[in-house]
Amino acid sequence: MSQAIPPILNTSKTDPLRSRFFEPSKLSGLEKMQFTTSRRVEGSYSGRHIAKRRGGSGEFVDYREYSPGDDLRRLDWKAMGRTGRSYLKLFQDETDLRCTLLLDASGSMLQGGRSVDDARGSKLQWMQFFATALSHLIVVGRDAVGLCCVRNEIEEYLPPAASMQHRSLLHRSIENLRPEGETNLAVGLDQLLVQSSRRGVLLVMSDFLVPSMEPVISSFRKFRSRGWEIVVLHLVHPDEEKLPEGNAFRFVGFEGDGEVNCQLAEIRKAYQEQFQLHLKSVRTGLVSAGCDYYRIRTDESYLDVLRSFLVTRSA
């Protein structure tokens, strides 16, 4: 397993436009893999993904009996001449994928960081590496990728696009992500739904540490009802799961939760039970909403996770 969180290179000296979280040399091996989906997608341009729409060109797939109103240009005249019956030729259209990365930019994503100002080792950093790499792979695959950063509401939104310039812009946005405040994922989702003109794939990366999961699930249901495919990466830091080693701690919340003094020996087990309950409820809620759920531990290498994620997606 490669290093979980790679050291952040200050690349501004050589290429000021390149993100600190972009590691092209490590991603070269993954560029042949596609971020794909098993569902039919709705794209703007021709691409490698099966479109929902059956076009007049492309790969022939089937015949259908003509019915009044059908485009006469797709009528198989030869067959009509041979048989006397009218059939339409159906072709499978292929189009590009529109993927929107929704990143949780709330304060809780700083978990694991060295300080509020130094996010090294945090969930945020892991997410930044992952999102940068994934967006790169999507663009390399000639698909469109957009970005939506959410705190209390949408902080930044970049509609999906497939150009390299757009990718660089997106990388810059990811690099400059500064998490703070509370999470209101439901509001951000609702706002994104309003702003998105076309359907696509919504990839959400969050720790889902929200006051209530009900509105979030409700928002996901709305996306699903509009034909969106939702992929959820639930980020969990090891400290959240098991609490740090040691006994006496003064825990400080990242989202204005205040401070708690406690001795972990007394409550570690009860906490773990509580947290496992939370993980279970998140998973149950999201899966029931039709999301493709992945729980990710941020102590794992983002490249390994990305590889297995892409393999799973393309399977």
Partner: peptide
């Protein structure tokens, strides 16, 4: 009583619930 180490934790609310749950028992202990 041991001097506590300051530590950032995103899941403070779960910690609070656990502490609340064990409060009476801990105090009795």
């Amino acid at each position: 009583k041991p001097k506590p180490v300051r530590f950032g934790l995103s899941t403070v609310r779960f910690l609070r619930e656990a502490i609340e749950q064990r409060k009476a028992r801990s105090r009795f202990r």
